[in-house]
Design a protein around this nucleic acid. Structure first.
Lengths: 109, 109
DNA sequence: TGGTTTTCTTCTATAAATTAGAGGATATCG
DNA sequence: CGATATCCTCTAATTTATAGAAGAAAACCA
């Protein structure tokens, strides 16, 4: 299997992080918060679909809640296969980033 | 600026890691070694060109060496801007991967 | 109750990045 | 010079990412 793409990595990790509360809107908010960048709706939902296709996440329809309004949520959960792929991904990253210097105030003088 | 794409990250880090010995062939070998996967020639050179365009690396033509054969090498070097982008990238990754569980023999039982 | 508001997703067109490898350039060896 | 070795250029095809309009569905409220 190839390496995860950037968006796949970020979205998959977000789903893992959000536990039982991962759906389109929360995933998008979370990613914006972490990265400090703007992400269009499509930048979240398109990779989400692909992760489902690949079997790295499962999805199920949420039920109406007491909160006002809203189409029902589509929740996502990471699969064991998804966890495995993330673990492999991290291994590669650790080797790649090994020894990369820390940025300190000193470096920026 | 957007996040680095996966290939940009991997190639850029390889250039940094290879110091004065980063050119197409060594970068490709290095990435294969680290990831354990096959990478076509184009998967290296196309992102390399883009990194140059973006100002994250510089390039210069190498001179003939004593080793047999060969078109002269095109070397690459990371720029200060490249280092900065990598440092930002790592920040994002650290937050994303924070708390992700270690894989142990125990987990796989 | 029906119009309004809110929350969230679906869909799809366009742009960008990745992948693949044939082909060619250029050097040394014998 | 011919054979061989090393490395790069180029571009077509595929896959991913990006954008946001449109619409679905629930609760609110006059």
């Amino acid at each position: 299997m190839k390496l995860l793409s950037r968006q796949e990595e970020v979205v998959l990790l977000s789903i893992w992080k959000l536990k039982g509360n991962a759906y389109g809107v929360t995933v998008r908010e979370y990613i914006s918060e972490i990265t400090g960048k703007y992400w269009s709706i499509g930048s979240i939902y398109v990779p989400l679909d692909r992760l489902v296709e690949k079997g790295l996440v499962t999805t199920y329809q949420g039920l109406p809640t007491k909160r006002r309004g809203g189409r029902s949520k589509r929740f996502y959960e990471i699969t064991p296969e998804g966890m495995k792929v993330l673990a492999e991904m991290r291994q590669v990253q650790r080797i790649l980033w090994k020894d990369f210097p820390e940025v300190t105030a000193e470096n920026n003088k």
